[in-house]
């Protein structure tokens, strides 16, 4: 079974409906500096550490890690709904996961929100994700 881990955090310079000026002005274009999106950069870097650790730990697992901006709700809402439904959650639980998943920062594994609001220490994030993956893996003895 393919697992999906979604890391939610803002991209710097990502602006919707800005008439082509979105995605400009951060570090990645010639039209910006490092200070403007400093707050985003620190979150991006902290989540980047979690991302790299998960990549290293789960390199042989059937896992897809996606980093997404919380404002990309057109993708994020259906993705969280789909994963939560696949997990077999009831409507109330789905709503709870959806609400918590779409936040400033969150880590979601197969539709279940493990952390939201703050990026956890890397070790905690990796341990929680691994634990969650073990739980959601079907028991080979039963299968």
């Amino acid at each position: 079974m393919m697992h999906r881990i979604i890391l939610v955090r803002e991209w710097d310079a990502q602006l919707a409906a800005s008439g082509c000026c979105g995605r400009l002005g951060g570090e990645n274009t010639e039209l910006g500096d490092t200070e403007t999106f400093a707050a985003n950069r620190s979150e991006m870097e902290a989540m980047g550490e979690v991302y790299r650790a998960l990549r290293a730990e789960l390199f042989d697992e059937d896992v897809e890690i996606t980093v997404v901006d919380p404002r990309n709700m057109v993708w994020l809402v259906p993705a969280l709904l789909k994963d939560a439904r696949r997990r077999g959650l009831n409507l109330r639980e789905i709503w709870s996961q959806l609400r918590r998943g779409i936040s400033y920062t969150s880590i979601v594994v197969d539709g279940k929100v493990l952390f939201n609001g703050r990026i956890p220490p890397v070790e905690d994030a990796v341990a929680a994700v691994k634990k969650e993956l073990e739980i959601s893996e079907p028991d080979p003895a039963v299968v």
Partner: peptide, 19 residues
């Protein structure tokens, strides 16, 4: 995982198009 992140094409389209 910060700037260079292989991203699902639908996610990337969302980021790109809205900008």
């Amino acid at each position: 995982g910060v700037d260079y992140v292989p991203t699902n094409k639908h996610v990337l389209f969302g980021h790109h198009f809205t900008s």
